[in-house]
Design a protein around this nucleic acid. Structure first.
Length: 587
RNA sequence: GUAGGCGUGGCGUAGUUGGAUAACGCAUCGGACUCCGACUCCGAAGAUCGCCGGUUCGAAUCCGGUCGCCUACACCA
């Protein structure tokens, strides 16, 4: 279905042409003066230069021609040369009705050329609990994934686990100290290792920080951990079996936590999956003459003449010959290209890693790991700060676990529900977590991803203002009316011409859905969806305020109202789904 | 030091391919409704868009300079 702006632009373009002007002047935008009109065209102002004619004269000619169309209710020129347009109520109603008939997509077309997109987000570390630092990547990545998918692309999400390196050696070392009797530490053992892991997730979460702290004080301990890491990476059977257990236990726990956030991944690959590709990759870089030794380390130059800043070479191997983060990330691209051959790879990462990723991206292109036409896209997000404007910390000053943050917000929502006394028990708890998630995600996503933002729990959980709970409340209210009326939400029934200004305004807002989704998808900017949702919710509330829906006596009018409500509900629920949360039935 | 980002009413944020009176929320003040579920609606007050200059008929937006804050600058990920 064509977007409303395209349809109008088509007509205005045509009018410019028939009046003898270039069609490029016919572009139309949504009015920035809603008090004057709904849509505007500024083309006459620009055309005035080329045709050496007063802009108002050009605008007048074009407007006169447009007036003859029944698409418009009003179409007039306005000093110094604007063309102001209002759609006719009938035309608008018919457009909205066709949106309504399309109950799955509400008039949003899929992209003409779907791309295969891999999106790398999450980035949790094995054996370590998720903390608030992981929140933004998960929330933003999930939303972009869903939005691109809705737009029609083929999207694969990969969690990209941190499951390689010294941390594994540390865990093994500490485990050996505590339970030396385990068969994993018996080098002579030839049999099959137990299927059951020799630890639980809570033990694991305790072991890692303990080992990490010890290694900082105890040189010998650290040496042992490094040795364990080396053995693990060079085929020690027992250690590899342990790694398998660590992965299983940890990934199960991570899945549980991501599930609470309503975040899912198609792939649970990690750094360890990239290791087999490293030797050949490095060898090829050497053979092709890209990699050379600098200060003992193997590097690839990625500087460009156009750089205004110093871009250091991309390091491939450390001077001791060991691989590092870069190596793993590049090798990850190797298997991603080999197994999936995506058109685009997106990385949703802290913006402080931008320079690092330009190095890696350039290196990947230069060495041919990734072909020139593949799009590598870095989405850097800012820091989540506390009310003091500094990075978010617990009261004790530590890093807060994501689970605790989540339950704190849930408790807050639960107490609100209890105050209202509308529900209790399991339903109350479930609703509280649904609303809590909306508060957290909407609070995050309504800001531009690249900017820092302040996590203000009181503001985010409020049911007033531009918040998740406000949006949900608006939706719940609509659902309630629809169910009271016994209206089938998915009937796709048509809508009559607007009876009031607020109803027309609501319809106009609905027509902008397609454009909003499109720009959010192409710009990978979830905050655009938030802005749209909020505008739509407001438009609905204005309509709701001055229209008695259930009490409407004319059955046809009432039915039209309900259709409009169903469509609004449908659009809002689809939109919040793109943000990664959903609405409860009641709240 | 070099490079990048940011600076918009008291607070939190939109708006940056240049376009009409700089938008929204919170907070403040005044009304309406209290009916279809924590509400909602209408209105008022409040910003020389960090500062200076330039380009333009027109600048929050582009250019130059300047101040402030944040960040990154190879053997950590």
């Amino acid at each position: 279905m064509k977007q409303i702006l395209e349809l109008i632009t088509d007509k205005v373009t045509e009018a410019f042409e028939t009046c003898g002007y270039d069609k490029k002047y016919g572009w139309v935008s949504i009015s920035n003066r809603p008090d004057l009109c709904e849509f505007q065209c500024n083309g006459a102002l620009a055309a005035a230069k080329e045709y050496k004619k007063a802009p108002i004269a050009i605008a007048g000619e074009v407007a006169e021609r447009l007036q003859t169309l029944d698409m418009f209710e009003k179409c007039e020129s306005c000093a110094p040369g604007f063309i102001n347009m209002n759609l006719s109520k009938e035309y608008l109603a018919s457009y909205v009705s066709s949106m309504s008939a399309d109950t799955k997509r509400m008039g949003v077309d899929k992209v003409a050329e779907p791309k295969k997109v891999m999106i790398d987000y999450g980035g949790p570390n094995v054996a370590k609990p998720l903390h608030v630092g992981h929140l933004r990547s998960a929330v933003i990545g999930e939303s972009i994934k869903r939005t691109l998918r809705f737009a029609g692309h083929d999207v694969i999400g990969d969690v990209h686990l941190g499951d390689w390196g010294l941390q594994m050696g540390l865990i093994i070392t500490e485990l050996k100290l505590r339970k030396p009797e385990l068969v994993y530490f018996d080098d002579t053992f030839q049999g099959e290792y137990p299927k059951e892991a020799p630890f639980t997730i809570s033990e694991l979460e305790e072991i890692y920080p303990c080992a990490s702290a010890k290694s900082k004080e105890d040189e010998a301990y650290k040496a042992e951990a490094m040795d364990a890491t080396f053995k693990l990476q060079h085929g020690n059977r027992g250690y590899q079996a342990l790694l398998g257990h660590i992965l299983t236990v940890s990934v199960n726990d991570l899945k549980r936590n991501y599930e609470k956030l309503d975040v899912t991944f198609d792939l649970w690959k990690g750094e360890s999956d990239a290791q087999p590709y490293i030797p050949d990759m490095v060898q090829k870089m050497k053979d092709d003459g890209f990699a050379y030794i600098s200060d003992g380390a193997l590097v690839v130059d990625v500087k460009l003449d156009t750089d205004t800043k110093e871009v250091p070479p991309c390091m491939i191997l450390k001077s001791d010959g060991a691989s590092l983060y870069n190596t793993t990330d590049l090798a990850t691209m190797v298997w991603r290209m080999k197994d999936y051959n995506p058109d685009t790879m997106i990385y949703v990462v802290d913006k402080r890693q931008e320079l690092y990723f330009t190095q890696v991206f350039r290196c990947a292109k230069k060495t041919g790991i990734v072909p020139e036409e593949t799009n590598l896209h870095f989405i850097g997000f800012g820091t989540m700060n506390g009310k003091d404007g500094k990075p978010f910390k617990t009261r004790q000053g530590g890093v807060m676990r994501l689970e605790y943050l989540l339950s704190e917000v849930e408790e807050k929502m639960l107490s609100k529900i209890q105050e209202n006394g509308t529900m209790e028990g399991e339903e109350a708890a479930k609703t509280a977590s649904t609303v809590a998630l909306s508060a957290i995600k909407y609070g995050d996503l309504s800001n531009q991803a690249s900017k820092d933002y302040i996590f203000d729990i009181d503001r985010f959980t409020s049911s007033e203002g531009n918040t998740g709970p406000y949006i949900l409340y608006t939706i719940v209210r609509m659902k309630s009316i629809l169910s009271k009326a016994g209206f089938d939400k998915n009937s796709g029934a048509s809508v009559l011409a607007a009876h009031s200004d607020s109803e027309k305004a609501l319809m106009l807002e609905l027509t902008k859905f397609s454009a909003a989704v499109n720009s959010a998808a192409t710009e990978m900017a979830p905050h655009k969806i938030c802005a749209y949702i909020y505008d739509l919710a407001n438009a609905f509330n204005r309509f709701y305020h001055d229209t008695k829906i259930l009490a409407e006596e004319d059955a046809a009018v009432k039915n039209s109202y309900l259709s409009l409500l169903a469509l609004t509900d449908n659009v809002l629920e689809t939109a919040i789904n793109l943000l990664g949360f959903e609405a409860p039935e009641r709240m």
